[in-house]
Simulated assay, not measured.
Amino acid sequence: MVTMDEITIKINDVGWLRVGLVIIMLLLNVWVWTVYGWDKWRATKSGWRVSEKVLLWWMVIAPIGGAMGMKLFRHKTAKSSFKWRAVVCFVLGILLYAGVVWGCMLWE
Score class of each variant (00 low, 15 high):
Glu52Tyr: 08
Val54Phe: 09
Trp57Ser: 13
Trp48Arg: 14
Trp33Lys: 01
Met59Glu: 04
Thr44His: 15
Ser51Lys: 12
Ala62Ser: 03
Lys40Arg: 12
Leu55Phe: 02
Gly65Asn: 01
Thr34Cys: 10
Gly47Ala: 07
Leu55Asp: 04
Arg42Ser: 09
Trp48Pro: 14
Trp48Thr: 13
Glu52Gln: 10
Lys53Ile: 14
Ile64Ala: 06
Lys45Glu: 10
Met59Pro: 12
Gly37Met: 06
Trp41Val: 06
Lys45Ser: 09
Tyr36Trp: 09
Leu56Trp: 09
Ile61Gly: 04
Trp57Ile: 15
Ile64Lys: 01
Val50Glu: 09
Gly65His: 00
Val60Asp: 02
Ser51Asp: 11
Asp39Pro: 02
Ala62Leu: 03
Ile64Ser: 02
Thr44Lys: 15
Trp31Val: 04
Ala62Phe: 00
Ile61Asn: 06
Pro63Phe: 04
Ser51His: 10
Trp57Glu: 13
Val60Tyr: 05
Met59Cys: 14
Pro63Thr: 00
Trp58His: 05
Ala43Gln: 12
Trp41Ser: 06
Trp58Lys: 02
Leu55Gly: 03
Trp58Tyr: 14
Trp58Asp: 00
Trp48Leu: 09
Lys40Cys: 05
Ala62Asp: 00
Trp57Thr: 13
Gly37Ser: 07
Glu52Val: 10
Val54Tyr: 10
Ala62His: 00
Glu52Met: 11
Thr44Ile: 13
Trp58Cys: 04
Trp31Gly: 07
Lys53Arg: 15
Ala43Val: 03
Val35Glu: 10
Ala43Asn: 11
Val50His: 03
Trp48Ser: 14
Met59Trp: 07
Val35Trp: 04
Asp39Met: 02
Val32Leu: 09
Gly65Cys: 01
Ser46His: 15
Val35Pro: 06
Val32Lys: 00
Thr44Asp: 14
Trp38Phe: 14
Val54Trp: 15
Ser46Gln: 15
Met59Lys: 07
Met59Arg: 06
Pro63Ser: 01
Gly37Trp: 04
Leu55Met: 07
Leu56Thr: 08
Arg42Tyr: 12
Leu55Tyr: 04
Ala43Lys: 13
Arg42Cys: 06
Met59Asp: 08
Gly37Ile: 03
Val32Asn: 01
Val32Trp: 02
Thr44Pro: 09
Leu56Pro: 14
Gly37Asn: 06
Trp48Ala: 08
Ser51Asn: 12
Tyr36Ile: 05
Trp48Asp: 13
Val35Lys: 09
Tyr36Met: 09
Trp38Asp: 08
Gly65Ser: 03
Asp39Ile: 02
Val54Asn: 13
Trp33Asn: 01
Ile61Ser: 05
Arg49Cys: 05
Ile61Gln: 06
Val50Pro: 04
Val32Ile: 07
Ser51Leu: 11
Val60Ser: 07
Trp57Gln: 14
Trp38Gln: 07
Thr34Gln: 07
Lys45Trp: 12
Val35Asn: 11
Trp33Leu: 05
Gly47Pro: 10
Val50Gly: 06
